[in-house]
Amino acid sequence: MDMSPSTIRPKLTARGVNVFYDDAHALKQVDLDIRAHEVTALIGPSGCGKSTFLRCLNRMNDLIDICRVDGDIRLDGEDIYDPAVDLVYLRARIGMVFQKPNPFPKSIHDNVAYGPKIHGLARSRAEMDEIVASSLERAGLWEEVKDRLDAPATGLSGGQQQRLCIARAIAVRPEVILMDEPCSSLDPIATARIEALMDELKQNFTIVIVTHSMQQAARVSQRTAFFHLGDLVEVGDTDTVFTQPVDPRTESYISGRIG
């Protein structure tokens, strides 16, 4: 039951995206659609450009001086590299969760409240507490931390920290959440919790996840894109990509011969 791109309007579209670090050509002519309310997994051997591509989607690469991006990336049809686009607004709509949990050196409450606070999303203290509670709840962390919201976030375990970072991201109510290998520093139990969370979150958000684990991609994603040496080799429904890959490179990677 392959749904062709014409039947579902993609949330994000990338056309002819190239990325250069100084002279190194890190990403070559990538075309990719990301559909709404799905989990799209980006896989491939390390250094293949999957993280680079993810960071193009909320213009995180702008932080790197030597990085140059060209091509066309659109969010709901709007060019996100248009000079008129405000990065604040873009990143509020496209949230991000990083490889290593990076809670701010603040309390648990203040970590989650930070995004809503800077964007002015809560009109009162009560409303802010409500946002914090519901975000923590959706991130599956509420029960564990509800009695110590004022404790420093750095005291949480790795898995809790990462769920806190997810709560922090969804508190801003973004449309898309980018996850850059969110489980790479976590143990299997914490990983399972986050994978389950992703499944729930896709009801409300569009999720793009970079992962080095093919099993994880197979478990959580509906669509999978395989990158290799800066090329987007293959993209399709996760089942198809894993069972009937078109490109021989995809097949080699999946069967463990490269990467």
Binding site: N58, M60, L63, L87, V88, Y89, L90, R91, A92, G95, M96, V97, F98, K100, N102, P103, F104, P105, Y114, G115, I118, H119, C165, R168, A169, V172
Partner: peptide, 17 residues
């Protein structure tokens, strides 16, 4: 650590924030 900055930028914070 740069990761703290990225965390804030990822939420849509401006540089001064």
């Amino acid at each position: 650590p740069q990761s703290l900055r990225e965390g804030a930028y990822g939420l849509g914070a401006t540089k001064s924030e």
